[in-house]
């Protein structure tokens, strides 16, 4: 299964950081997201795009996880060489992350 089947997502930016929300469509799937979508797995999946650390916040009442990613925009929105200087497209990429529900 891919994350997009159970969650939706939006990126926000501040300086050289982005936050990416991962929100369960159905709150009954939140425990899967909570268990499987760890900061380590997200960091591995997004690879070299995110140069800094990833901090993870759980927002159980919304059935959502908020990831705060440092050094994500190659210097920040105002000076980034990236075509997508804000990192707005990163949320859709993250939704392609595979979720293994068997382990």
């Amino acid at each position: 299964m891919k994350l997009k089947e159970i969650a939706h997502s939006r990126t926000g930016d501040k300086g050289d950081m982005v936050n990416i929300s991962v929100i369960a469509f159905d709150e009954k799937d939140y425990p899967i997201i909570q268990k499987k979508v760890t900061a380590e797995k997200v960091k591995l999946f997004l690879g070299e795009t995110i140069q800094g650390e990833i901090i993870r916040y759980e927002v159980a009442t919304l059935g959502a996880i908020n990831f705060v990613m440092h050094k994500a925009l190659r210097g920040g929105v105002t000076r980034s060489l990236r075509l997508d200087k804000h990192g707005k497209t990163l949320s859709s990429i993250l939704l392609e992350m595979p979720i293994n529900t068997n382990d």
């Binding site: 939006r10 929300s21 929100i23 916040y57």
Partner: peptide, 11 residues
């Protein structure tokens, strides 16, 4: 929900 967490760090 998407807007609530938009550009938020520690909720």
């Amino acid at each position: 929900k998407e807007q609530l967490l938009y550009e938020v760090h520690d909720p």
